[in-house]
């Protein structure tokens, strides 16, 4: 009996040592995603993870910290290590709109987040189901003008990019009814099931759903390479260029050198042709906003979003 116990003990101790050995700490960077797995932030981070390992021979460990639409993670950023071993996903318009809309309840301020790069954005888009009678955006707009409020558009969440798109359309004379769902998946499901007439989503939806949906218009500056037949809102006469930007932030106390190192690395990945190709095929638009351009970019975005917030009545 005693012999067996001591053998088991020895086995356990040696396996512990083994486990420790296997997982010897490589230099690594922890990438905290403020959302659950499977979304756009996750997919693009996974793609970066692959290239990061190849280019810099370091592991990028992806972890999830979902909650509050990202707020839970952003609240906690500044209590994390600042030596560059941890970066956190940062999303626009979320990090600007949440503190505005929820004020103190958001738990953080936009200036709390030391954002150092944005590496892509997904432009907003209006989509319909493949068998919909609306073949072009003009058809949809005409329907909406004739029957104000009857056009139902599904989207994810309230005060999200999807919602804001419908508000911008309303300002341009197209009055639709926005039906919020919990997450893009549910919004797309409603679209495919024809529970709603159309969907206010991202270009990535068109990529994921393929021939099941028809993207009628996209809110990017130029037409997307993966969807050359889809006009931009600008072409159609609506000044709507918007979408969700995704990038990363460091704790506020991180050094400039750390910021530069990580920003340069991520921009290097952005420059890889294969990376760009995979991203574009998925409906993502690669942008190269590194740490040197970040302040100007953020200032612009804050101005844009604050004016939208004023229209919504969130700021007086």
């Amino acid at each position: 009996m005693i012999k067996l116990k001591s053998i088991i003990k020895k086995l356990i101790v040696s396996s512990v040592i083994l486990v420790m050995g296997i997982a010897s700490a490589n230099a690594q960077v922890n990438n905290i995603i403020p959302f659950g797995p499977g979304g756009e932030s996750d997919v693009t981070a996974r793609l970066q993870q692959k290239y990061y390992k190849e280019m810099f021979n370091e592991d990028m460990v992806i972890q999830y910290k979902p909650g509050g639409g990202g707020a839970v993670a952003w609240q906690s950023l500044n209590s994390e290590k600042n030596d560059g071993s941890l970066i956190m996903g940062a999303n626009l318009p979320h990090i600007i709109m949440q503190p505005i809309a929820n004020k103190a309840k958001a738990g953080y301020k936009t200036s709390d987040l030391n954002v150092f790069t944005f590496f892509h954005y997904t432009p907003d888009a209006i989509l319909v189901e493949a068998s919909s009678p609306h073949k072009t955006f003009k058809d949809l707009a005409a329907f909406a003008k004739k029957n104000p409020g009857k056009l139902t558009l599904s989207g994810s969440g309230t005060y999200s990019a999807n919602h804001l798109l419908t508000i911008q359309l309303e300002k341009a004379g197209i009055k639709a009814t926005y039906v919020p769902f919990k997450g893009t998946g549910a919004a797309v499901q409603a679209l495919l099931g024809k529970q709603v007439e159309g969907s206010a989503g991202y270009s990535t939806v068109a990529s994921k759903q393929g021939t099941q949906v028809r993207m009628l218009a996209v809110a990017s500056e130029k037409r997307l390479p993966a969807f050359p037949d889809v006009p931009t809102f600008k072409e159609l006469g609506y000044n709507i260029v918007s979408g969700a930007y995704r990038g990363y932030a460091l704790p506020k106390s991180a050094s400039l050198a750390t910021k530069k190192k990580l920003s340069d690395r991520l921009m290097k990945i952005n420059a890889d042709k294969n990376f760009v190709k995979t991203m574009e095929a998925g409906g993502y638009v690669v942008v190269n906003i590194g740490h040197d351009q970040i302040d100007k970019f953020m200032a612009e975005q804050i101005k844009i979003n604050e004016s939208i917030a004023k229209t919504l009545g969130l700021i007086k």
Binding site: K9, S15, V16, V19, I22, A23, Q63
Partner: peptide
């Protein structure tokens, strides 16, 4: 003690929980 250590390393290194 062994149990605690085993799970600690298992979670930390295998499951990547910080």
């Amino acid at each position: 003690t062994i149990f605690v250590l085993l799970l600690y390393f298992g979670f930390k290194n295998l499951l990547q929980v910080p």
